[in-house]
Write a protein that binds this DNA or RNA. Structure first.
Lengths: 247, 247
DNA sequence: AAATTTCTTGCAAGAAACTGCCGAAAGATG
DNA sequence: CATCTTTCGGCAGTTTCTTGCAAGAAATTT
């Protein structure tokens, strides 16, 4: 078994079980624990997994560990406030999950009538509280790491929609476009952008001009970007040049 | 169980119950109280919890405000405890929503590996927190009144499943069977019973021998009924005669 | 084809981490 | 005040980690 194969196997097991013991892996694929440990170290180095004493955890697992307090909650609330006016009555809106989206869902005006599509459980939950919003949940299999629905079912459902607006929380954006680091999430986000007439991205300023490993789309597919900063901030010049509206 | 997992479990329990005893934790996850104490100390060191003599408290009193009061929470917790042993590793399980089911989801042992299908957002949310449970969300359109997915999509998804167990919270049961009052919910519950090999119904005793307008199924389709009362209670005689196991 | 370099893997020894147990100290309880 | 519980610190047994090393495989050079 080649090293690459082995590491792929390890990643798959971690995806499946969310955690793994070095000793188990060693037995399963008949290599010494030292080799496993070296693999785990390499994977951890690449930010693919979280290594802990005795084995490794999926990155997602750890995030729930930290979830208690929302990072930069004030900024996110401000972003949410700027986003709400974009939503008009009777729109069909696709949204991702993420803390900023949740914040937005909470402050939607009660008389707003609209249909929201989402694959995020917490987001669906918030929308469902609203008196006049219809919620459609997309997909079936729920990824633990991202708490959203992923996989073919979700993608095909999204493809069948023609929405007015896609409101997307993002992890990284720079002059090359939006990037992320979870392959399954990427697929979903790509499909959402395709399915919507206009795309609005929400991001705290900290994530602007950063990038990750996998590309979701170029700047040309984005219509509006919302951060907690003032739109006149010079940080946004390159994005304005690309025709993106900053709010 | 890895140290990190254990600490994540502890945090989650504290989130849920707002307080925790070292001795309880020690029993739940089978490690010595010393280990628990060391974990609690580390978590307190990280400012995640507040350690007190004998256990720990949640740092955020905040959540206790948001926590809505569940009617007869104690009874429901007891029902949940009786239900858990029915679930074995690698089962495929269909569940409804409802506060009793949520309560059950929270106390599923952390090492349980199973696949849960549900159309309930809060239930899906709870299952998704669990380290080893795979969650499949059923359906798309979400009914506001019941917070579950309803409609043709949900029904057809359910029909495509062959589950080992259906765990169903119910609103009314008497000698004629299970009844409910929301037409859309009925359709979903009917489909679930059909799709599962065995059906377990959860109900607080108050609802036994009551009925509502619409029929879900007769007693012959039910295998087990769980309430907060002792199974020997004479209240259950007619149901036992019908071959239903009472727990 | 032979020699060399690089990569990978397994092994061993010592270091570090984890866990359980014990006894003494501190705290809670009636 | 007496008793019971919880905590603290240290110790020991076990497991895991690190490091250095050597043998074998693969790639590269001569």
């Amino acid at each position: 078994m080649l090293k690459t194969e082995r590491q792929a196997y390890i990643l798959r097991q971690i995806d499946l079980h969310n955690r793994i013991l070095s000793s188990d892996l060693s037995n399963e694929i008949n290599v010494s624990e030292d080799t496993i440990r070296r693999d785990l170290n390499e994977l951890a180095e690449m930010d693919k997994i979280i290594k802990v004493h005795g084995g490794a955890l999926s990155k997602s697992f750890h995030s729930s560990f930290l979830k208690s307090d929302v990072y930069k909650a004030d900024s996110k609330r401000l972003i949410a406030q700027k986003t709400v006016p974009l939503i008009r009555n009777n729109m069909f809106i696709l949204t991702t999950g993420g803390t900023t989206i949740i914040e937005m869902a909470r402050i939607l005006p009660p008389d707003l009538t609209a249909t929201f599509f989402t694959g995020s459980i917490p987001a669906a939950h918030e929308y469902a509280q609203h008196p006049n919003i219809e919620v459609i949940f997309l997909g079936d299999k729920i990824s633990k790491s991202s708490q959203i629905a992923v996989g073919g079912e979700a993608i095909s459902k999204i493809s069948g929609i023609k929405a007015d607006l896609c409101i997307m929380g993002i992890n990284a954006i720079d002059e090359t476009g939006i990037t992320d680091n979870d392959w399954e999430v990427i697929q979903v986000k790509k499909a959402m952008i395709q399915a919507a007439e206009k795309t609005v991205v929400l991001s705290i300023a900290e994530k602007v001009n950063t990038h990750q490993k996998l590309t979701i789309c170029g700047l040309d597919e984005i219509d509006t970007m919302i951060t907690e900063l003032d739109p006149s901030n010079p940080l946004f010049e390159p994005y304005k040049k690309q025709g993106i509206t900053i709010l």
